[in-house]
Nucleic acid binder design. Structure first.
Length: 887
DNA sequence: CCATTCACG
DNA sequence: ACGTACGTGAATGGT
């Protein structure tokens, strides 16, 4: 084996081969995010195989830079007629580059040149520098590069098997020298690259001619001597084509590449990067393979890091740190309102201070530090940190960069609660995930070994520092700095304060409800057992299905993956056919209230203050809405009276106070009117009309609102909802129980009456196709990778999302701005009123009676002026002695 | 750990 | 011809 071995891979061609080799199994190769991975997988297999054989000292993967090249300039139909790359393959290309990064192999592309030319140029340079060169490709044209120093390996049967072309092998297969490949292509042309060659001349004839005359030039020098024949006529006729085709087939071996052989050293793969990558691609077999490799543990370790353990004695040192710092507070449980504290770290520029003793944070040193406006503290998850510090009696007012919040804004999928995983996704490798250090499931625990724990804390601080400038640049590129700085960052503090405030729960009321429901449930249960003729678990859809559709022989309509559907919509269709149906519906309703709301809430009331403290997830939803967990206070019942009574248990924590609630009226349709610019929709809001009624007038062609019956209004309302959700005739027909044809007619009329809305829908879908994402008013961004999918369902879903996200998301932007201004007003006016909850278009407060008059004016005025739209925003308010009474 | 159901906007 | 409304979280049963 030579000392210097150069491996050159044609990235596009191998990826293409890999994709089609595993095309049958396409649906099996998808990761957690729905990304197809078959080409990446196949490419990886090929790489492992070829690296084993070649053991290169230097390596590069070349990619095509784009459609236009110097060849398309020579012949504008070059590669014309080729069907475009399937989106399921294109979506994999960026990840292929990530894979190669993990393998430590450089990639390169050059505008106006194909990957072939890069490879031709480097192989020539390599030969001259004394390398043994191996070229890997799926394209046999490249065999023109084979020589005594260069082997061209062409993938066959899938991708990991290759056929090695040496000059001898070319001779054996074709009877030609490698250099004659281009002459063969000149005469025969190439259908896949769409250039013609000579009419009626294929590979066979071309080879015969070349054996006699050696080259295209040779053929034409002697064409006059040939006996008259059809072949001769074609040769003469297509002379120009032959020379052009030869030129097109010739690989440029002097492309103006910017890489040199010195850049291509190959020193083996980066295990940590690959493990992370394989996890994201869900490549279990490669992961297993890596774990079984010897020295895996060693390779996992990140770059060394030093730290100082903080103690009361050296506490003073943190005051001497520079003004911009990283801080991390470790709370092992998911719920930070109740979690224990494991430790913390602070520092910058390789001076990392760590400790398990969180009591140190309560020292005046830190109290001063965290409210010093001259300092800027960077963290991962500001809201979590704020609440944690608050529990330790420390007010945290100078948080600057929250890398969790920032990476979520950059890509809403990037919302993992693991700093290590986040860092890896942003290309920073010197950190392990919590899972790796703390373990998973029941085995998860903070290491007893100080050095292991402290090192992990220090690497977190380092990762924060490294990522802050990078994310800053990316936010700026996306025009999202304003969204971060003026909305999400201040909102994090507002939310923290709301969570800390909590809402008081009347547990006596809940317990009273619990015993009432228990009694009612056992009565209904008995009736159902009697009607069924046996006892069974009513909560089991499987058992219930058997009883209803087999034992009682009721007609089953809808099925689920696992059996009969027993959803409400199905049961409602069976009403009247058997008395058991009504009882089951009532049982379901009551037991839902009982288990989720009565028992569920009682479980999470804090015994210290009789309150529930929800956690808002600020970095979860794909639209920019908040979500609420543990408990979820955004889905407390309201539609049915039975459930609505739950709201009686949410009460003011102080005497002589009220629960006050303000909500935006029709905010999504108002946002729709603004974004689409539709004049008719805007006029309805400007005139403060009942929007569903005026929609009804338009789509049913009525004279005026007086002709709108409740049923017609209901249908118009469903159409309005449908528009916001990204309408389909089927969806609408299901929702209001009409035929699909009728639904389609409604939609068509709607678009005639509201042409601006129609135009918007067309434009937003096109823009999503072009850019790959959609945006809200405040530049919140959602990527839609499926918008160009060849799968109809996925594509249709992405199109509906493209319509809905700017609307739902802009409404979320608006209420977030209102919340920030509201909290600011409460503080500057030194009011005792507390903002407690947000339910998407509604804010709930606890208001002392003597502030009620002020709040009644203040809240709506702030909410309706949060943002200036082309239509007015409308806010409605109510208050009472419980949330139930605030209606 | 996934599927189903149902609570909310 | 495809098979559907958009965004969430919690409880439960069953593998």
């Amino acid at each position: 084996m030579a000392d210097k071995r150069l491996l050159l891979i044609d990235g596009n061609s191998v990826a293409f081969r890999a994709f089609f080799a595993l095309h049958n199994a396409l649906s099996k190769f998808t990761n957690q995010d729905g990304l197809h991975t078959n080409a990446i997988y196949g490419f990886n297999k090929m790489l492992d195989h070829i690296l084993e054989i070649v053991q290169p000292t230097d390596a590069l993967v070349a990619f095509d830079a784009g459609k236009t090249t110097f060849r398309t300039e020579m012949f504008d139909n070059y590669k014309g007629g080729r069907s475009k790359t399937p989106p399921e393959l294109s979506e994999q290309m960026p990840y292929l580059r990530e894979l190669l990064k993990g393998y430590g192999i450089k990639t390169y592309e050059l505008a106006n040149y194909e990957a072939d030319d890069i490879i031709g140029t480097l192989s020539k340079q390599g030969e001259e520098a004394g390398y043994e060169v191996t070229v890997v490709t799926g394209d046999r044209d490249l065999t023109q590069l084979s020589s005594d120093k260069t082997t061209v390996s062409v993938t066959i049967k899938g991708v990991s098997e290759v056929e090695h072309y040496t000059p001898a092998h070319v001779q054996e297969k074709l009877g030609l020298r490698p250099a004659q490949i281009i002459d063969m292509k000149g005469l025969a042309g190439d259908t896949s690259d769409n250039y013609p060659g000579v009419t009626k001349v294929g590979e066979k004839t071309a080879i015969k001619l070349l054996k006699q005359y050696d080259t295209v030039e040779g053929v034409y020098e002697h064409v006059d001597e040939m006996k008259p024949s059809k072949l001769k006529e074609h040769l003469v006729e297509d002379r120009d084509n032959a020379f052009l085709s030869k030129k097109l087939a010739t690989i440029n071996r002097q492309a103006p590449i910017k890489v040199t052989l010195d850049d291509l050293q190959y020193s083996g793969k980066n295990t940590a990067t690959l493990v992370d990558f394989y996890e994201r691609m869900n490549f279990q077999s490669f992961l297993k393979q890596m774990r079984s490799t010897e020295g895996f543990e060693d390779q996992q370790t990140v770059q060394e890091i030093s730290y100082v353990e903080l103690t009361p004695k050296n506490l003073i040192e943190v005051t001497k740190l520079p003004s911009e710092l990283s801080f991390y507070l470790e709370m092992p449980d998911k719920n930070y309102h109740t979690s224990s504290f494991a430790g913390f770290g602070i520092g910058c520029d390789e001076k990392w201070y760590v400790s398990r003793n969180v009591d140190l944070l309560s020292d005046a040193t830190f109290k001063q530090l965290f409210s010093d406006s001259q300092k800027q503290i960077n963290v991962f998850d500001l809201k979590r940190t704020y609440v944690g510090l608050n529990r330790l009696g420390v007010l945290f007012t100078n948080g600057k960069n929250d890398i969790l919040l920032q990476s979520y804004l950059l890509d809403t999928n990037d919302n993992s609660n693991d700093l290590g995983a986040l860092a890896h996704r942003h290309g920073y490798q010197d950190i392990q995930s919590d899972e790796e250090v703390y373990g998973t499931g029941v085995k998860r625990h903070i290491p007893e070994d100080d050095s292991r724990f402290f090192k992990h804390l220090a690497t977190k601080l380092r990762a924060i520092q490294q990522l802050v400038p990078q994310l800053q640049v990316e936010l700026k590129q996306n025009e999202q700095l304003d969204l971060y700085t003026n909305i999400e960052l201040p909102l994090a503090l507002v939310l923290a304060k709301m969570e800390i405030a909590g809402i008081k729960v009347d547990t006596d009321r809940l317990e009273q409800m619990q015993s009432e429901f228990t009694e009612r449930l056992s009565e209904i249960e008995q009736t159902i057992y009697n009607e069924a003729g046996e006892t069974f678990n009513i909560k089991s859809t499987k058992q219930l299905g058997t009883i209803l559709f087999e034992k009682l022989g009721l007609p089953s309509s809808k099925k689920t993956k696992t059996g009969y559907s027993t959803a409400v919509s199905v049961l409602e269709g069976l009403r009247g056919q058997a008395p058991i149906i009504d009882n089951i519906l009532v049982y379901r309703q009551i037991s839902k209230i009982q288990s989720t709301y009565v028992k569920g809430l009682l479980k999470v009331v804090h015994s210290t203050d009789q309150k529930v403290h929800t956690t808002y997830l600020q970095t979860l939803t794909q639209t920019g809405r908040l979500s609420s967990i543990d408990p979820n206070l955004q889905n407390i019942p309201i539609r049915l009276e039975e459930g609505r009574k739950i709201r009686q248990a949410f009460v003011p924590s102080k005497t002589d106070s009220q629960i006050f609630s303000s909500d935006y009226s029709q905010i999504e349709l108002r946002v729709l009117a603004h974004i689409t610019g539709d004049k008719n929709l805007q006029a309805a809001f400007k005139n403060d009309e009942d929007i569903h009624a005026s929609t009804a007038v338009r789509i049913f062609g009525l004279k005026d609102a007086s002709e709108v019956t409740p049923n017609i209004r209901r249908q118009a309302k469903a159409v309005n909802f449908g528009i916001v959700y990204g309408i389909s005739d089927y969806g609408l027909s299901q929702n209001i129980g009409i035929s699909r044809k009728q639904a389609k007619a409604f939609i068509d009329t709607y678009f005639q009456e509201f042409p601006g809305v129609k135009k918007y829908i067309e434009n937003i879908v096109q823009s999503a196709r072009d850019k790959g994402y959609v945006e809200t008013i405040a530049h919140r961004r959602r990527y839609l990778p499926d918008i160009n999918s060849s799968n109809h369902n996925q594509r249709a879903f992405a199109e509906r999302t493209a319509m809905n996200t700017p609307i739902q998301g802009s409404a979320a932007d608006i209420i977030k701005i209102a919340m920030i201004r509201m909290q600011a007003q409460l503080e500057t006016r030194k009011l005792k009123t507390k903002m407690l909850l947000q339910v998407h278009d509604e804010l709930i407060f606890e208001v002392p009676n003597d502030e009620l008059e002020e709040i009644k004016k203040l809240v709506p005025s702030i909410m309706d002026s949060a943002i200036k739209l082309d239509v007015p925003l409308k806010v409605e308010s109510a208050f009472g002695k419980s949330w139930y009474n605030a209606k």
